[in-house]
Design a protein around this nucleic acid. Structure first.
Lengths: 239, 239
DNA sequence: TATACCGCTTTGGTATACCACTAGAGTGGC
DNA sequence: GCCACTCTAGTGGTATACCAAAGCGGTATA
């Protein structure tokens, strides 16, 4: 007789379900950045009580996806000033993580990372490119075997997630990103720590430039229409 | 007529009060790491209802000061394995922040940082040393003008807070820490980025060694009695 | 017509009752 | 005496009622 060994994953609590739904909606830009939220509105919309809704909101607040807005809540607006700071932090953390990865990762680990890259084709969708970018960086940092660097990177990628749609907009930009990822993996395989750190920093800087180019193409007006609220951080950008 | 311009700070909510009380109790080691907590117990002890108690617990959970423990909560045990990882992260973030501080900080900013150091005497209390260490590192990173590096550092210092009591246990260790802080400030004043980064990394590494020495002196048994639960991370340490 | 004031609606914050579930004590049978 | 089962007390999770306060409209008055 077949026995299901603990295969029951135990139904996620309502708090988790609501948290996941809200998070997904926010990250997929299905709710406009800056949009106001009310606990009672969400309660009705998600057909649950306020208790789990509030718990989910508080968790999202700690991740920077939702903010308090006077009395009330709002979906965190996209702040291009934050983007620069987050990329600075990522350069520091991920280049250090690359060095640690060289110490800790086995050849098989690096081969798996390479395989992850090979599984992606720049002609794939924007969504696939978005996911690939996140996964690559998180998996790279995971090889450092430092859980706090992983947590920091996951947090940064989450906060950058909505902006990152712009970075992976064109097939060309996705191809460039993959090429840079490849170069990083090559340096890791060669166990060349300074070169790996240099390439990580370079890649993140290039990423920022591709984002800037994408911003230049789409007019600020069109960005606003799509919910991008540019608060500060770019010369000439409307506050 | 005297008008009080918004000088009313508005009484903090119960959630905040409870959060602060719990946080303080945990960081001051007034509750044993690993101790179990129940929502109803805290509700009675803090004379509030479960709603704000739960909110405070969830926030503390996100900061790593409290963990879920099956059905229930526990004060996060001290995990020496985590300490190493956190210090690794701090080296990455703070040495990068030092470089940015050199770009952004004015001479007056650096003088203020120096003044902070001068205001402390190693003969001061252990508590003063503990506070000084936190403040110095946070203020240093603040000069990078990168709010996410600041947040990362504050988070790391919080998670390390309870362990750090051991680092500042003796007057000698406090004196060494201050001397190393001084050297960092000197490098910043000289606008020598590589040297500043080197000294930051060195200081954090030395910190780790002073912690190790302090651990060697106090017997593991005595540590357990004081609530230190050594899960992993040191050879021979009990799991 | 403009403005000031009053009251009602709606907000988040809090208290509390109820639920399903589980660990563990206690008890019964073997 | 030991083991297994049952029942209970206590857990976190959820729903909901109530509260003070803030914001908004409408109205009345200058």
């Amino acid at each position: 007789m077949l026995i299901f060994v603990n295969e029951t994953v135990q139904a996620p609590s309502q708090t988790e379900q609501i948290y996941n739904r809200l998070r997904e909606n926010i990250l997929a830009l299905e709710v406009t950045p800056g949009a106001r939220l009310t606990e009672r509105g969400l309660e009705a919309e998600l057909s649950a009580s306020r208790t789990p809704v509030r718990a989910a909101l508080m968790r999202l607040e700690s991740e920077g996806l939702v903010q308090r807005d006077g009395r009330g809540w709002m979906v965190a607006p996209i702040d291009l000033g934050e983007v620069g700071s987050l990329l600075e932090l990522r350069v520091a953390v991920e280049s250090a993580a690359a060095g640690l990865a060289i110490e800790h990762a086995s050849d098989e680990d690096l081969e798996a990372l390479d395989e992850l890259l090979r599984s992606f084709d720049p002609r794939d969708s924007q969504a696939a490119g978005h996911r690939m970018g996140t996964d690559f960086h998180v998996e790279l940092v995971r090889l450092s075997e430092n859980p706090f660097m992983v947590a920091s990177t996951v947090d940064s990628m989450t906060r950058l997630s909505r902006t990152r749609w712009l970075e992976v907009r064109t097939e060309q930009s996705r191809a460039l990103a993959v090429a840079e990822h490849r170069a990083i993996v090559e340096a890791l395989k060669a166990r060349d720590a300074p070169e790996a750190a240099r390439l990580v920093a370079l890649h993140i800087t290039n990423t920022q430039e591709r984002l800037g180019a994408s911003l230049d193409e789409e007019r600020s007006k069109s960005l606003r229409a799509r919910g991008f609220v540019v608060l500060r951080g770019l010369p000439g950008a409307a506050r």
